[in-house]
């Protein structure tokens, strides 16, 4: 089974630098196969380079898709992550 969700990114640096690293770690920790897409480009969410190459900025809409057991739970975790601001100072 697979599930899909569209989320607006809340981090003020988007998914660059530290937030990108944290997102990839979070995606890896869910244990599910996750992809993240912006526009028509879709990448493996476990790939920091893939995620950085999307050039996601604050306020962008991204679509996350998860497959495998616990897909919904994985998307719950990642949706919360994406909506939160992870930047300090």
């Amino acid at each position: 089974m697979s599930a899909t969700r569209t989320v607006t990114v809340g981090s003020s640096q988007g998914l660059h630098a530290r937030p990108a690293k944290l997102f990839v770690e979070a995606a890896q920790n869910t244990g599910a196969q996750v992809t993240i897409a912006k526009g028509d480009k879709s990448v493996n969410a476990a790939s920091i380079l893939g995620v950085m190459s999307l050039g996601v900025d604050k306020g962008d809409e991204v679509t996350i898709t998860a497959a495998g057991d616990g897909a919904e739970a994985a998307l719950d975790t990642l949706e919360t992550f994406l909506k939160t601001d992870h930047d300090e100072a």
Binding site: A17, R18, S47, S53
Partner: peptide, 16 residues
């Protein structure tokens, strides 16, 4: 250390 850890992730990156 944080920057180097990010480099480790790049080296192990599935896309590359």
């Amino acid at each position: 250390q944080e920057v180097l850890d990010a480099q480790v992730m790049m080296a192990q990156d599935p896309t590359v």
